[in-house]
Amino acid sequence: MKSQSIGQLALAAAAVAYLIGVYFASSPVWMGFTINALIIAVVAMSWNITGGFGGLSSFGHAALYGTGAYASAILQVKYGVNAWVGFAAGILAGAAMGAFIGALAFRYGLRGSYFALVTLAFAEVLRICASSFEFTGGGSGLQLKLAPGLANLQFADRTVVYTALLVVVAVVMILTALIKYSRFGAYLIAVRENEDAARALGIDTYRIKVQAMAISGAFGGLAGVLYLQLWLFIDSTVVYGSAISVEALIGPIIGGAGTVWGPLLGTLGLHLLGEGAKHLLPNAPGLNFVLYAVVLICALRFLPQGLVGLAGKFGAFTKKKEAEDA
């Protein structure tokens, strides 16, 4: 097993330092901005389960994110269900949608570009449906009643929101680490590395892939619910739009796909970059996406393992350990 390197520890430490530093930042803008980045980071972690560990690159993770958000919003707005129940339902709905898409796509052996396209099409179908039916609020979306309080999962205080999000991010990362070092994770990675060999070794690859989609769906649905509880408003473009699908895959690829820290590092890094650009060039909507795209192209060429892989090259412990063993 590969050990952590000093470079990776430093990178993780920098991220943690930044996240703590936000508490002491002079301007509240930092916290608001980081809150948004953290929600996207959770979608990125969702993508990382399938795309990073399983090598199943989805281009339509908005399908999971949006389903979580809509499930919770519909229950709360139309049926007056409690926000906490909606929270759980959103996660479950995301997982169910993930399992459904996975079950269909993998039943028919889709992989590579075909899987990417089919996930994209699912997100698009859901977006059009959500914008067309009265049930989902149609084009005007769904709005939650403003009612701050723990029981309603709404917090007026930004610091509380931020802290809660940090806890959620930490939990998702711990779950990711548990998955990575579990039998399931090993099987998922085996599927990515060589599906035929995995099948020969007794792995039910179909089941593993569908389960991965379900877990990814749960994380994605979770992110959607977080967005809903934060903004109290969703519509089809915001939660089912292609921007989410793009952000879901870009963070992990730049940070390091198939690593525990990659999605967080990549997303934070990108958002900081985008925010910086916004200050240099105000009134340029979408400029952050141009930057993301440029970084993505460079990362694909020069950082095949992402930031985490790059950091791993600095001060690796493994060499020393081998020498001791010998």
Partner: peptide
């Protein structure tokens, strides 16, 4: 179980991790 004429390693994993994928069949604990 069968092996492959054209070897099919999990190229990105270490030798021990490769073998462990097989071992996981009856040993669920890492």
């Amino acid at each position: 179980i069968r092996t492959f004429q054209i070897v099919q390693p999990f190229a990105g994993l270490t030798v021990q991790e490769n073998i462990a994928v097989g071992a996981y069949l009856h040993h669920h604990n890492r």
